[in-house]
Design a protein around this nucleic acid. Structure first.
Length: 958
RNA sequence: GCCCGAGUGGCGAAACGGCAGACGCGACGGACUCAAAAUCCGUUGUCCGCGAGGGCAUGUGGGUUCGAUUCCCACCUCGGGCACCA
């Protein structure tokens, strides 16, 4: 041990430096970002600096603690933020905690510790672990969604949504009072009986039915295993809960629902204005699932049946109809002779879980109702069936079946012997691909034909599609024909459903809603917020068997009688006047996990504001639109891809409501989104399949062993159960935070997933040791830099590095920025000479030039700030490195006077020539032709063609 | 099934259509050490050759181009999303 030089940059020294600088940053409040006004204002520090709001998806405070994968994105934003501070920006960067919701509550139930106790302990642990990472966060702005001072405003925003309706004409939300006023004034039809003829109760129900937050009896995802309903987005394709993997059943219940579908078009169209990864935009587009087509009326004995179709052009091929088993007209249409069979089928369909109904490749079942409907273009009476492949929740819950043009209908027709009529002649290639001669006899077809084909057998007295060849044109003609006769109209349908917003749990925001005797919801007055979540000693949901579909939700809050009953003065939604004090019953459901994350970025801006959720000027400063047409929003939002259709859709929706109602200037919450990858790890199992500690596995000749026993390797997430967790604390201990940060950033592009390899971390530690050694003598601790100017080649390397690193930092390419800095330091080391053997010899060579060392340290600062600050100070700088202007490349030194140009013969590199920078094409060609090796390669032949890329390459084509 | 994305040394990865493999790990050789660790220096895609040098190489097969890891088409493999959405 004595042989290690006293002043070597070891983990111990790194730890000492890091904790010292972390304390100093905190004392000096280095990372506090000033607001333009309000309690966090500091106009002097804002002047001349452009604002920049960068954001991480905030974590939920897990009891499991952090592993090395968690901070990847946080380090990325920290590096970017520190770089932007050095380029003169006023950077807002903070981190809060998403602490309400099912994960925290499930954990609390498992451990028997109250979620608040748990949550607070976990937040404290995470704060400590993250502080040790040296993140440049403004600590004043950290919030937890469970703080009363926070969820008070979550409730307040909910009330704004409750008190709003969507005006389709103006394409925006408006206060519900304006709707009441327009109805009362008679300027807007109610869609039913005139306002004046309605009773107060009827008016209340009408108004409530139009709110953006409404109670509705609707099919919901009931999950007895969790004791709550779930949003569609929280249910997996297998029909199980995202959390806990319990069965989910479809049940009709009266639940809070948010009218996100009103925003479907804007959520879809505004994606085009966002700087987001295309893949995420695509996922949101698919989730919203807008389809254009037509609604068409088919008359039946029980009244008109309306269908939605994207292919009105194929109406002539509609040979039967299929209704969803839950369709309201099924009863009326069912012939007495068919009733028993229909009822049996409906019962079976109802009992099937979503999982069973979801698999697309199972046989198409269904039963006929014994009724017919009239095809509006052919006048034919076609049979009506029910089948579970038609879903009540999409379109109208009924379809016209065109077996020749839709594979599902084709399968169904084949299974049940229903007629198939072609309306298009498929192209010859289609038949050829199926090994078939062209024919209109669909009995010979192996599948439905979907695509452009010439229309046939598609005409009646007044509508002729025959001879057309385009789906769009034929569809437009058919739709126009239907519209002219009142039989249908162009229509748009979405996959997106309204957002089921209540949970029968304890650990969430209580609704700021009470009920009177009529059972209609009423908003509690704003000034009574927050509606506090009562402290319960028994917070567990009632134990329900996960498979018991018939169980009933029992929200824990319903057990708190003195909380549920409340005496209040509330405003009458119809008159707008305050009612006399009376007794009400509180809503006992709570909001879902996603509520708090729908607006948290706004609270970072103004965390202490007691009179508004965020000050308008402060919001405009940080998030306002940057130019006409700009959506505004966070400048850079970094997080995992798993929230593509959950948090990211919900937050956009809330933000748009707030924008419509004039509460925020930005139209979108997150202007630029970046998805960081995941850090994964190898895990190892012994021959019995038991995971063994990954850290103790050794590799021998390409195989893996643990305690002499062969083990198998797999790859996946880090987790306790796989015994492959590596924690940041271990990395701090073994290498220091700077090395850890550098390693994570050097592993590859930030948006790519990669495998953790503790073995590789040492590379970055060696790099920092070499940098350190170029500045500080390892034995004496003396700073050894020289004031003499750097030689030209070193200076050139410096300026090229500066230009490259700036580029990489802007583009979040930290891995290549680090590679460039290592190269520069290697060049510097070469210049200083091998100092491994002597102290005097290094000094004799004059040490590393200060003009290179200082910018190198500055460029390192965003990546490994502690050691950079330490070196900066040891180099005699007394100014704050965090705000020292980032080095600027001198173009004169980025270019060099000579360039080495590769010479190709027929596209293969045969030689290189050195030419002056800016040499003409002719000069380059002559140099190339004069080259010995080129002449050998040409073997006396004269090039037929010469391609010269100035400064880059010569290619001689023989 | 449909829709995205990705395939480059032993490993993580670089490369505005222009020198494939920067940078790091590992491995091998050396220095220092009684020794080991740590650190430092050198070599390291692959094949042929003593060498100078040359051949082959970016999942596979085609194409565009003077020139393709990069652009286009088809296929294979892996990863992700959606999944009876009419």
């Amino acid at each position: 041990m004595a042989s290690i030089p006293r002043h070597r940059y070891t983990a111990a020294l790194a730890n000492e430096i890091e904790t010292r600088w972390q304390d100093r940053w905190e004392e000096r409040r280095t990372f506090e970002a000033p607001n333009p006004s309000g309690p966090l204002a500091d106009p002097a520090r804002i002047a001349g600096r452009e604002q920049l709001f960068i954001l991480d998806m905030f974590p939920y405070p897990s009891g499991a603690g952090l592993h090395v994968g968690h901070p990847l994105g946080y380090i990325g934003t920290d590096v970017y933020g520190r770089y932007q501070r050095a380029t003169g920006h006023n950077v807002l960067h903070a981190l809060g905690y998403d602490a309400f919701g099912l994960p925290a509550e499930q954990h609390a139930i498992a451990t028997g510790v109250h979620p608040r106790v748990n949550t607070e302990a976990n937040i404290a642990t995470m704060r400590r672990q993250l502080r040790r990472l040296g993140l440049a966060h403004d600590a004043r702005r950290s919030i937890s969604t469970t703080d009363e001072s926070y969820y008070r405003w979550t409730q307040w925003i909910f009330l704004r949504i409750f008190d709003a309706w969507y005006d389709e004409d103006r394409r925006r939300a408006r206060p519900i009072r304006e709707l009441v006023d327009e109805w009362a004034a008679g300027t807007r039809p109610t869609g039913g009986a005139p306002w004046a003829e309605l009773s107060h109760a009827e008016r209340t129900r009408l108004v409530n039915s139009r709110r953006l937050a409404y109670l509705a009896d609707a099919p919901v995802n009931w999950c007895p295993g969790l004791g709550t309903i779930l949003a569609n987005e929280e249910v997996t394709a297998e029909g199980r809960s995202d959390i806990g993997n319990y069965p989910v059943f479809t049940r009709t219940m009266r639940q809070w629902t948010l009218r996100i579908t009103a925003y479907a078009d804007r959520l879809l169209e505004d994606l085009d204005r966002l700087d987001w990864p295309e893949s995420i935009k695509l996922m949101q587009r698919n989730w919203i699932g807008r389809s254009h087509g037509a609604r068409v009326r088919f008359d039946s004995a029980a009244g008109p049946i309306e269908v939605f179709t994207t292919r009105p052009d194929t109406l002539f091929g509609a040979t039967f109809m299929v209704l969803s088993p839950e369709h309201p007209l099924v009863d009326a249409l069912t012939a007495p002779a068919r009733r028993a069979e229909v009822e049996a089928y409906r019962a079976r369909a109802g009992a099937a879980t979503d999982a069973e109904r979801a698999s697309a490749d199972r046989p198409k079942t269904g039963v006929p109702l014994g009724a017919t409907a009239t095809n509006p273009v052919t006048g034919a009476a076609i049979p009506v069936w029910i089948a579970d492949y038609v879903l009540m929740g999409y379109g109208t819950g009924a379809i016209m079946a065109v077996p020749s043009g839709d594979q599902r209908d084709f399968d169904f027709a084949r299974a049940h012997g229903l007629p198939i009529v072609a309306t298009q002649m498929p192209p010859d290639a289609w038949f050829a691909a199926h090994g078939l001669a062209p024919t209109l006899d669909c009995a010979a077809w192996p599948a439905a034909f979907v695509g452009d084909g010439t229309y046939v057998q598609s005409r009646n007295d007044s509508l002729v599609l025959d001879g057309l060849a385009s789906i769009d044109e034929a569809g437009a003609r058919a739709t126009a024909w239907l519209e002219a006769r009142g039989l249908g109209r162009a229509a748009t349908t979405y996959k997106l459903r309204d957002w089921l917003f209540s949970r029968q749990r304890y650990w969430g925001e209580p609704f700021p809603i009470v009920f009177g005797d009529d059972g209609e919801p009423l908003a509690v007055p704003d000034e009574t917020l927050p509606v506090r979540l009562p402290e319960l000693s028994d917070f567990t949901p009632q134990a329900l068997a996960p498979d018991d579909e018939r169980s009933e939700p029992a929200p824990p809050l319903s057990r708190v009688a003195d909380w549920v009953g409340v005496e209040l003065e509330v405003d009458d939604p119809i008159t707008g006047e305050r009612r006399p004090r009376a007794r009400y019953r509180r809503e006992v459901n709570v909001m879902p996990q996603w509520a708090g994350s729908c607006w948290y970025e706004l609270r970072y801006l103004d965390p202490t504001n007691a009179s508004r959720f965020v000050d308008a000027d402060v919001e405009r400063y940080w998030m306002g639109p940057r130019a006409p047409g700009h959506t505004g929003g966070v400048a850079l939002y970094v997080g995992g891809v798993e929230h593509a259709v959950l948090h990211l859709l919900y937050a956009r929706f809330w933000h748009k409501v707030l924008h419509d109602l004039g509460h925020v200037s930005s139209e979108e919450p997150f202007h630029r989104l970046f998805n960081q990858g995941y850090i994964q790890a190898h895990a190892y199992r012994d021959p019995r399949g038991q995971p063994v500690p990954a850290a103790e596995v050794v590799e021998r000749d390409g195989a893996y062993e643990w305690r002499g026993e062969p083990v198998t390797r797999e790859y996946g997430k880090m987790g306790k159960s796989l015994k492959n967790v590596v924690t940041p604390d271990e990395m701090y201990e073994e290498f220091g935070a700077d090395t850890f940060r550098l390693y994570e950033m050097s592993m590859g592009p930030l948006d790519q997933s990669r495998a953790w390899n503790t073995r590789d971390v040492v590379g970055m530690q060696r790099f920092l040791q070499r940098v350190w050694r170029n500045v500080v003598d390892e034995d004496s601790g003396e700073v050894t830099v020289a004031d003499a100017p750097a030689p030209d080649d070193l200076r050139r390397a410096l300026h090229r590095t500066i230009a490259g690193v700036r580029d990489d930092m802007e583009g979040l390419r930290f891995n290549t920025a680090i590679a460039k800095l290592i190269e520069l330091n290697n060049a510097l080391t070469l210049h200083v000479g091998d100092r491994g053997d002597a102290d005097a010899s290094g000094a004799a060579r004059g040490g590393a030039p200060r003009e290179v060392v200082l910018p190198l340290v500055q460029m390192l600062a965003p990546l490994c700030p502690h050691v950079a600050c330490e070196l900066w100070e040891r180099l005699g700088r007394t100014d704050d490195l965090t705000y020292a202007p980032f080095p600027v490349a001198d173009p004169a030194w980025v270019a060099s006077d000579t360039v080495e140009v590769p010479v190709q013969v027929n596209g293969k590199v045969r030689s290189r020539v050195v030419a002056p920078a800016g040499a003409t094409d002719d000069a380059l060609r002559d140099l190339a032709l004069a080259d010995e090796r080129v002449r050998a390669a040409l073997q006396g032949a004269a090039p037929r063609k010469v391609i010269v890329v100035p400064g880059r390459l010569v290619n001689l084509v023989v």
